[in-house]
C-alpha cells in the first residue's frame, strides 16, 4: 500500500481532488499555462513525476508555480524522488508526496524536518535570514 504525506500528515488512504493536472519535468511552464483555458485557477492538484531523483528540474518548476503563478492547490511529487529530498522539495512548494510502502515513517519525519533554520527565502518562507537578523 502506498502512502501519501500531505501537509505533514502521513495518510494510508486519501481522496484525490477532482480537477487534477500532471506537469512533465521538461515543461515550458509559461506556454503550458498559457494554453490552459482557465489558467490554474480551478486546478486543485498538480502532480509532477520524478523519473530519476537526480533530475532537479521539478524544484524550479514548483517554485515558479507557487511564486510566479500563485498556485495555491496541492502540489504532489510522485515517482523516484528520495526521502532525503523532502525538506528541499517542501521548501520549493511541494506539499504532498507519494511513497511506496517500504519507506519508514521515521525516515520521512527525519528527512522532512532536517533543518529548522535557513539562509535563503523559498516558498515556505519568503523572507531570507538576512532580513530577520537583529
Amino acid at each position: 500500500m502506498p502512502k501519501l504525506l500531505r501537509d505533514g500528515e502521513l495518510l494510508s488512504s486519501w481522496e484525490d481532488p477532482q480537477s487534477a493536472l500532471t506537469i512533465p519535468v521538461d515543461v515550458e511552464l509559461d506556454n503550458f499555462i498559457d494554453e490552459l483555458n482557465a489558467g490554474l485557477t480551478d486546478i486543485s492538484l498538480i502532480t509532477i513525476e520524478f523519473s530519476v531523483f537526480m533530475d532537479g528540474r521539478a524544484f524550479s518548476i514548483a517554485r515558479s508555480l507557487r511564486d510566479h503563478f500563485d498556485y495555491q492547490g496541492e502540489l504532489r511529487a510522485v515517482g523516484q524522488f528520495i526521502p532525503d529530498q523532502l525538506h528541499y522539495l517542501s521548501r520549493c512548494g511541494f506539499n504532498a508526496f507519494l511513497f511506496s510502502e517500504d519507506v519508514e515513517a521515521e525516515t520521512i519525519e527525519e528527512c522532512l524536518n532536517a533543518f529548522s533554520e535557513h539562509y535563503q527565502a523559498a516558498v515556505d518562507d519568503p523572507q531570507p535570514l538576512f532580513r530577520k537578523r537583529a
Partner: peptide, 10 residues
C-alpha cells in the same frame, strides 16, 4: 545564500 539552497541541490 548558496548554502543548502533548496532549489539548486540537483
Amino acid at each position: 545564500w548558496s548554502t543548502f539552497h533548496p532549489e539548486f541541490a540537483f
